[in-house]
């Protein structure tokens, strides 16, 4: 039996395959957002980890039924201090995790190389990735806030919109770190150690889960410069003490500097292929 043939295949494809819809930069940017959001909700593991992790952590940590003292001297359940910390921590994990691991895998498999061969500017693709993660960060923040307040009964003082803005802004800083990790990594295998390197000190010393007041002075000073410390402090100021933008100027400046430095190096070093 010989290979089946058809008139169509033998003579021409018989088609005009595409029509213009706009500039590659804009069309590629929009398509990347849609594509990346699909990547999030179509990946059961990512979906369960990103959305389930806050709920599980809340469930576990809320079972430690003890009181803490806020900087203003007020005594409150641990949950009231934990929830802002978790909102900040989620901003970090969404930013780092979902960008660094996914982008690194796509780079290693040659997906980014294929995109690089199109006229879409790198900034459009990366911009689409960033926006998609900011959407996820906003979603995770709302879920964490909603479940903490309405399911577990936490009492937060601050403006919800400002909290959301802080969490999304903080996620943007960590997204820059995520892209930086991909930019400086030689392969997918380099990402987990880098992730741990950022995660561990942040987890232990940022104040998101553990009180920083007991740290030795030098360690308190050093870890006061961690990006998650700035973000956690800002979220706690707003959520626990009802602070406004003026009260968190220093934290915002610290985050902005980290974000600018990470963005500059990532922009310089990041290559699609």
């Amino acid at each position: 039996m010989t290979v089946a043939t058809s008139d169509r295949a033998a003579t021409s494809t018989g088609m005009s395959t595409a029509r213009h819809v706009g500039s590659p930069a804009w069309a590629g940017f929009k398509a990347t957002i849609t594509n990346q959001v699909k990547a999030f909700y179509r990946e059961p593991a990512a979906l369960a980890f990103t959305l389930g992790q806050p709920l599980i952590l809340l469930l576990i940590l809320n079972s430690f039924n003890f009181k803490i003292t806020l900087p203003n001297g007020e005594t409150r359940p641990y949950l009231d201090r934990l929830l802002p910390g978790m909102i900040a921590f989620n901003g970090m994990t969404v930013g780092l995790n979902s960008v660094a691991f996914a982008l690194s895998r796509d780079k290693q498999r040659g997906v980014l190389r294929r995109i690089r061969a199109t006229p879409v500017p790198t900034i459009s693709f990366v911009g689409g990735v960033i926006v998609s993660r900011l959407i996820v960060a906003a979603l995770v923040t709302l879920i964490t806030y909603g479940s903490g307040v309405y399911l577990f009964g936490a009492q937060l003082e601050g403006n919800v919109a400002l909290l959301l803005g802080l969490a999304v802004g903080g996620a943007a800083v960590f997204i820059a770190f995520g892209i930086l990790m991909v930019a400086v990594s030689r392969s997918e295998d380099d990402i987990p150690p880098m992730f741990i390197l950022i995660l561990m000190p942040s987890l232990l010393f940022s104040g998101a889960f553990l009180d920083r007041s007991g740290l030795p002075d030098w360690l308190h000073w050093v870890t006061g410069g961690l990006p998650l410390t700035f973000l956690t402090d800002a979220v706690q100021q707003v959520a626990n003490l009802g602070g406004g933008l003026g009260d968190i100027r220093g934290d915002l400046l610290g985050l902005a500097i980290w974000g600018a430095v990470a963005t500059a190096i990532a922009g310089w070093r990041f290559k699609m292929a």
Binding site: A18, H20, V21, P24, A31, T32, N35, T118
Partner: peptide, 13 residues
């Protein structure tokens, strides 16, 4: 195909 097409500013059939 739609995603790659968008990277060219095109909507492929």
């Amino acid at each position: 195909l739609r995603f790659l097409g968008a990277c060219y500013g095109m909507a492929p059939d």
